[in-house]
Design a protein around this nucleic acid. Structure first.
Lengths: 105, 105
DNA sequence: ACGGTATACATCGTATCACGAAGTATTGTT
DNA sequence: AACAATACTTCGTGATACGATGTATACCGT
């Protein structure tokens, strides 16, 4: 699908994925896979961005000799999700325009 | 609102705006204004892009001494709108993920 | 006559961001 | 021994929305 269309949703997707329990990158990809394809390079870019924006915190942990970075959502991160839900109304307005004009097919 | 979220929708918005009748830039902005804010620089960038992609054709006309460029949608442009409607299903899937996980507020 | 606003289009530069490619390192499987 | 899976990282690129700025004409109030 068109990459551009997903823009702005992926950040919120990642925040949503870690909302209920702290989790790590590789797991996030698996969790969201049924809903949206997310490459590793994309995910880790997003995680960095969200950390910079203080929407999540990181805790490094070792598991079977392998490094794992567990991500935890912050208040700011939760707020971002709520903001998205508000913004979605505007998106639906744009969508309604496209569908409204398309009723004469 | 978050600019990123609109990405990928604006092209289709513009195509939708000229779908029913040939129209020109300044008018398009007015037409879509109730639904989405669209600056001139953004619009003309999009129109150029859509023309390059052969999704619309241009016809220059004079009106009260002022130049006007009327845009006409092509088959390819109409197809793009239909494609968007298909892609929207994937967008709604992503949206459902965000909402599904948010039911424990 | 003058100034401001509306009409109409154009160009440039910038910031944001998704992603493919490639790499490092360990563990499990065949 | 070879390969897949797990796990994270960095680099470079292409797409694109938009503010700033510019050009030019028409209209309207004072």
């Amino acid at each position: 699908m068109d990459i551009q269309l997903k823009r702005g949703m992926l950040d919120v997707c990642v925040l949503t994925a870690i909302k209920n329990e702290d989790t790590y990158g590789y797991q996030i990809i698996k969790n969201v896979k049924p809903y949206v394809e997310l490459s590793e390079s994309t995910l880790y870019t997003i995680l960095k961005r969200l950390e910079s924006a203080q929407m999540l915190t990181v805790r490094t942990s070792e598991h079977d000799g392998r490094l794992r970075k567990y991500y935890h959502i912050t208040e700011k991160g939760l707020k971002r999700i709520e903001e998205f839900k508000e913004e979605w109304k505007e998106i639906m307005l744009i969508y309604s325009f496209i569908m409204k004009e398309g009723d004469n097919d």
